[in-house]
Design a protein around this nucleic acid. Structure first.
Length: 420
RNA sequence: GUGGGUGUAGCUCAGUUGGUUAGAGCGCCGGAUUGUGGAUCCGGAGGUCGCGGGUUCGAAACCCGUCAUCCACCCCA
């Protein structure tokens, strides 16, 4: 048996209604906040991701689905949506458009990781990018959208955490302080953190090992090294969140894994998920557009994991099924089968949702299928009816039956089906 | 990439210190009702015990390998 690829899942018809609901909710909230859909390719040249996400990140180092195109250029299945969105923004010179460029996207992303609860190799993200606005209110707008959307879905156990990464210069100034402090306790740090000390010391701050946490608890804080400019920007973001009544918690350990973030970073986690507890996360990335060859452009955005939202979303009722398949046509016998097929087509052409199971050969089997498909009516056409040019419409709930004629069938059915 | 758990019917799972025809519940099909669904009763079908080796008189069970899957580390949505 040929099986699907590891970490790549099928969404069967039973689950697609819930996904559609999530997607529609996301779309509705995004457009309410003035974001417009952008559809970007699923693969891009590899260098786009390497340059934007950062060459020393795990994503670029070992998680990308990269392959050679036929002409030899290296291409990669997108591991996230920001890079492609920014590329499109630059390529189409959207900086020249006089209105705010606020985009949202929705679709599959690919990372070659070991699958676990809430982590797949093909997963789906909903994301927004607000490009060209340096105002703290843009940060607030994006965070607010994220929070309202998740709240509207009533996802349980949510927390919004926020931090200020400052400008690149601020982090450069802070890093030596942190490293000097951590060096004193180097022997007590976990192996990972000892490596991080060289590669990316800030990441030591969000290590989960208790010993490391204890050490970093009293470490010098990034907040103390931030420039006045960075501080006042962040203060305005927090004031804005207060003004629109978004509850948040400051988390000085929140250091995002992608290189392009600066100033505001935030993350929404849920206690009802497994170890991978981030539902959505984002931040400001003022340098990225320029890094990718565009004009200096401030930007802020977030991405949401749809699988993780789906894991949290309460069960939805399937009441709609009744409307989905409302009429079952039970055609059986040599002539009844053919007459049933014609009736099916005729009803469908008038816009009625009409189904049948051609595998059923007896009336009993047909009615059983009608019941399973939750049809409200069954149109019975056996050989007896077919030769008479008639059919029987059965109400599956009341068991009431009406005779109808096969000529001019659709109008008769329409009125019987809609009348109470 | 590393570690641990689990692979038996369509699904969820039993299966004793290794013992003869591998079970249950649910589901499915049929009958009771030769043309009327759901409920009930009766009957039936359905299994390379993940795969490959090994130990043994005998393996679903023990050993080795392998694959799949889940969870965790790492990292992230």
């Amino acid at each position: 048996m040929i099986k699907g690829i590891k970490g790549v899942k099928d969404l069967l018809p039973e689950e697609t209604p819930r996904w559609r609901f999530l997607e529609e909710t996301a779309r509705r909230w995004a457009s309410r906040y003035g974001f417009h859909e952008i559809r970007i390719p699923i693969f891009e040249v590899t260098t786009l991701f390497a340059r934007s996400i950062g060459t020393s990140t795990d994503i670029v180092e070992k998680e990308m689905y990269t392959f050679q195109d036929r002409d030899g250029t290296s291409v990669t299945l997108r591991p996230e949506g920001t890079a492609g969105t920014v590329r499109a923004y630059i390529e189409h010179n959207r900086a020249a458009v006089p209105v705010p460029q606020k985009y949202f996207y929705l679709g599959p992303m690919f990372r070659h990781e070991r699958p676990q609860a809430g982590r797949l190799r093909q997963f789906h993200q909903f994301g927004v990018e607000s490009l060209g606005t340096a105002d703290p209110r843009a940060d607030v707008e994006v965070i607010s959208l994220l929070w309202r959307m998740l709240s509207d879905l009533r996802l349980p156990g949510l927390t919004l955490e926020i931090n200020n990464l400052g400008y690149t210069g601020d982090r450069d100034a802070y890093r030596p302080h942190l490293v000097a402090y951590l060096k004193q306790y180097e022997s007590r740090l976990c192996v990972n953190c000892r490596n991080r000390l060289e590669a990316n010391p800030l990441r030591v701050l969000d290590c989960k090992v208790p010993e490391c946490r204890a050490i970093t608890e009293t470490a010098p804080r990034l907040a103390e090294s931030l420039s006045g400019e960075a501080n006042s920007y962040f203060t305005k973001v927090l004031m804005g969140l207060d003004a629109v009544k978004i509850p948040y918690a400051l988390n000085h350990r929140l250091v995002r894994g992608l290189d392009y973030y600066n100033l505001t970073t935030f993350e929404v986690t849920s206690t009802n998920l497994g170890a991978q507890n981030a539902v959505g996360a984002g931040g400001r990335y003022d340098g990225l557009v320029e890094t990718l060859g565009g004009p200096p452009t401030p930007a802020v955005g977030f991405a949401l994991g749809l699988e993780r939202m789906s894991m949290l979303a309460p069960e939805f009722e399937r009441a709609k099924m009744l409307d989905d398949a409302s009429i079952y046509v039970a055609g059986f016998g040599d002539q009844g089968s053919m007459a049933g097929l014609a009736a099916l087509e005729e009803l469908r052409l008038t816009g009625l949702t009409t189904v049948s199971d051609f595998r059923s050969t007896t009336l009993k089997a047909h009615l059983r299928q009608a019941d399973r498909l939750a049809c409200r009516f069954t149109l019975i056409i056996g050989d007896d009816e077919a030769v008479k040019g008639s059919a029987i419409l059965r109400n599956m709930e009341t068991k009431a039956q009406h005779d109808v004629t096969l000529s001019g069938l659709a109008p008769q059915i329409s009125s019987l089906v809609t009348s109470p």
